[in-house]
Design a protein around this nucleic acid. Structure first.
Lengths: 257, 257
DNA sequence: GGTAGACTATGACGCAAGGGGAGAGTCAAG
DNA sequence: CTTGACTCTCCCCTTGCGTCATAGTCTACC
């Protein structure tokens, strides 16, 4: 029988010797013979099997999955392919959305040529909510606190600012996509954590003077009480606000005490 | 100054304590204070920085990249974003093509209901080239060798067969995409390795009786000599065949001796 | 002031799929 | 009998942490 040494097989198949060692150790592709010096010798069957391995590897199967597919003759290949397919689809969709975010970030940075003017400071970020919030805040905490917060914002570089605005949109999108989940779920709560830290950026250090718990809970309440806040993406969406508010309150209860 | 313990900061930001330890050790996010018991305490600036870190992490930046982006104020963020973007695009395109291949494989397997008939044995695989090749082969090596090869094929399971056919198309696509590269480049040669092992499937063990070098080089020659082989994807494409032939010969010279 | 319970610190191992290298043995040719 | 080309088996390294293990610290309650 024609046999191949590790080196030969590696060259034939376009992989490294180390890879063959690895597959051997992993139990994915064993040589048909070991010489007395423990040299590996592979036959035709192994070449074919290696081809199959490489095919599935190209499809991004893990070695473990490949082993299952090749080992078990009754294995439901179609089901494996289909579940693998949906995993790949998810990854692709995620990449697409990342690409959008990057594009937005890039154009936003390019757009921020000048230093921030007073109008820009609040423009476009949680939409006009911010302007409303400013008035609210002035009434509630006084002009001093608000000015401190604004000066904090003005100290951001253009890029930080652009990124922050982008992040706001991103957080909103993420939260909106979780709208029909339980507000107390961890994934939701982690998204809320981003929201919190983001909003935090707009608060001066002395906002609520250390009582972040009260402040954030208050904001959650404000969201449902004040009609100006019940708008998402331009259209009125009370369900979303309800969800967000509940999620925020849960966050405050469990993580801000 | 308001400070946060690891636990607090972790909860606020929705990450694990271990992650903060990791970022500290990695030099990505250091606490502003260490108590005498070496407890970590983070301030406001660190919270903001962590936000930025998480933003870039969402964009699939590596920690190393994030460090560069955040560390160096003169860092060209736009260039970083753009190069990162094209990396993501490549990944997405690759996934798209994998998804196509998977779809094809699935429908092919579903289509292969029956056992292979004589006509099917050569149908659709390197198109009609195979039929031509069969005659060629019978003349060259005799009916016996050809029948051995056919029986070898018939021993494949339906799924292996479907996969093999799919792989043939895949290899062709890959090679075609490399057409304007140097035939001796490693990437090309690895693709040729797949082609070789694939073709090998159609040869009985006694084809060329062990002299794979001669056999594969001969096939490479045949490709350019015989007009029936100069067709790719239905249309005549001598340039592709020239490329393929040269790549195959180089492969034979460097890896089949 | 003593102890339980909650936090925290450091260190080390593990994961996927090998890359790379050390140190030692093997093989064929001159 | 030596040289050069292969090959073997460890073993550490990569990324971004998860998951113990062991030990020290802080706070509250009795």
């Amino acid at each position: 029988m024609r046999t191949y040494s590790v080196n030969k097989l590696a060259k034939l198949a376009g992989v490294s010797v180390r890879t063959l060692h690895h597959y051997d150790r992993f139990g994915l592709l064993k040589p048909s013979i070991r010489t007395e010096a423990r040299y590996r010798l592979y036959g035709e069957k192994e070449l074919l099997r290696l081809q199959q391995i490489l095919f599935y590897k190209e499809l991004d199967f893990s070695l473990e999955e490949i082993r299952r597919v090749l080992e078990d003759p009754d294995f439901n290949l179609i089901r494996a392919l289909e579940s693998h397919k949906s995993a790949l689809q998810d990854r692709r969709d995620r990449l697409s959305s990342l690409l959008e975010t990057i594009d937005n970030t890039i154009s936003r940075i390019k757009g921020e040529k000048t230093m921030l003017t007073d109008e820009e400071l609040y423009a476009g970020f949680p939409k006009e909510q911010a302007e409303a919030y400013r008035q609210e805040a002035v009434e509630k905490y006084g002009a001093k606190v608000v000015e401190e917060s604004e000066s904090k914002l003005r100290n951001l570089t253009k890029e930080q600012w652009a990124q922050a605005r982008q992040e706001g949109l991103d957080i909103n999108r993420t939260l909106a996509s979780l709208m029909h989940r339980d507000p107390t779920e961890e994934e939701v709560q982690n998204a809320v954590a981003r929201h919190f830290a983001h909003i935090r950026l707009f608060w001066g250090n002395s906002v609520a003077n250390g009582n972040l718990y009260e402040a954030y809970k208050g904001l959650a309440q404000l969201y449902v009480d004040d009609p100006r806040y019940t708008t998402h993406n331009g259209n009125h969406n009370p369900e979303y606000v309800q969800f967000l508010s509940r999620a925020m309150k849960h966050f405050a209860e469990t993580r801000l005490k």
